[in-house]
Design a protein around this nucleic acid. Structure first.
Lengths: 258, 258
DNA sequence: CGAAATTTTGATCACGTTCAACTTCAGTGG
DNA sequence: CCACTGAAGTTGAACGTGATCAAAATTTCG
């Protein structure tokens, strides 16, 4: 709703598609097939659940717009968010691959989604193995995101954690064209951040204040600007991982598209 | 070397294969093709590196025997282990899917490995899409393991963490037949455990002592026995996630094997 | 405008780290 | 057989960080 991203979109501007193109060659036929998998679009309002812990869920559900959080609620009332979903991410990864989802997903903002059933995707994968390979790559990326968060929470100081988180979100938003080189909109509360980083709300607040005080970031109106990206990266020890490309099948060269 | 596991193996007893069978139907032809992908076997001694952070690595490398740890070393000297690899796990997941590995892997015990190049696997996947789908499922499982660890470290108490870790390893070893219903061999030091759980060594020691004191576990000679599995599961809030099966392609029914 | 959510600040305190010493045990050579 | 060595496990004391609780300030939204 806020007039932030003026995405000069093509007819079918899907952040998911944008993400795919970084590591897989998609022939026109592939793109059409992928498009055909999208059953429908839907909107979900802020604060509404997308997936509930313990229920079956079998949609892939690509995020077209908005933010969401994948989390687990513990019986002591505490909540841990394992990942913040941004445009291009898949809601049902990993939830749709198990009998009963073990994590819930909640919308942090109003969202636009593209629905796709996992069964349909798998069926398509048998005809186009490339799709299944792409799913492997996506799942690997998901795993790496989590692994990095484990390091964050386990062994980095609270200040480093906050810095690392901001850099990670920025990198992921950049991939789908939702960030400028030095800043991005971050429409999430500090409470959410604290549940991502395993800290208390007051402490997140203090760490953010410290980053501001040291001139590394500026926050205004839920927009983050890196005022000293170099220092921030040094502090957070941030090293973005780049997925390798999926090798093409060894066959007729002339079949490959430009 | 310690004469603990007398694996009465078949001709080709691969824990990796065992794991696959839980979620994918493998026809005899599939099994042969998979077998053909194994280039060679190799051994790695305890304390030796399998993957080094920052280097290219393009093998999948299935663990046949032994334990390893995937970790990251921070510049302050701290180490965070993001996952303990057990038989049936894949060393190169996710390391081989990125330009340069962002995590290192070290052998915690002497190991036996089955080598398989990622390129060969991908090539095979184009002919047998089922392989690529299986890889997706495996990567998803890896992601879920990490997600659970994030919850562990972020919001569970140290006592719960230790309990949860023991239950998780037990569940994973059970899947590949390396555990009894109530116990398993855990040939890793408390220092390793502390780096998995984001705790200090003395504190891990205290928590283990507490679990023993409350009669939930018994440890002797690097073997863990659950003396009160019920209480342990309650404490850790352990809920094992079960992968769904990969749907078969929609075609001639008679092609399916028993 | 009123109500609710969020951000900010402060004071206190418990938990888990840190550091150190000591024990235990396996392996090794005198 | 027993000292020597190094790795791993155990215990204790002191300290500091970040949680907790509480309250105020600020913003958002119905």
């Amino acid at each position: 709703m806020p007039g932030l991203a003026k995405v000069v979109a093509g007819r079918w501007d899907s952040p998911f598609m944008t993400r795919l193109k970084y590591f897989v060659d998609l022939a026109p036929g592939d793109i059409d097939a992928l498009r055909a998998l999208i059953e429908s679009e839907s909107k979900v309002d802020k604060r509404h659940d997308l997936v509930v812990d313990g229920y079956e869920y079998n949609k892939l559900c690509f995020v077209k717009d908005g933010f969401a959080a994948r989390y687990k609620l513990l019986r002591n009332g505490k909540r841990q968010i394992v990942n913040v979903l941004v445009p291009g991410d898949i809601v049902g990864l990993p939830g749709s691959f198990v009998d009963r989802a073990t994590f819930s997903v909640i919308a942090l903002t109003d969202m636009r989604l593209e629905l796709c059933s996992l069964d349909a995707f798998v069926a398509a994968s048998y005809r186009r193995p490339k799709f299944a390979l792409a799913m492997s790559w996506l799942a690997v990326q998901e795993a790496m995101t989590y692994a990095e968060r484990v390091v964050d929470i386990g062994r980095r100081t609270p200040l480093e954690r906050v810095a690392h988180f901001l850099l990670e979100i920025h990198a992921r938003l950049s991939l789908v064209g939702r960030a400028t080189p030095t800043g991005f909109d971050l429409p999430i509360s500090q409470e959410v951040m604290s549940d991502v980083l395993g800290l208390s709300v007051p402490h997140v607040n203090r760490m953010l204040a410290k980053l501001k005080g040291e001139g590394m970031i500026a926050i205004a109106d839920r927009r983050v600007e890196f005022t000293d990206a170099k220092a921030l990266q040094l502090l957070a020890h941030f090293q973005p991982a780049k997925l390798s490309r999926i090798p093409a099948p060894i066959q007729d060269k002339h079949e490959l598209s430009a």
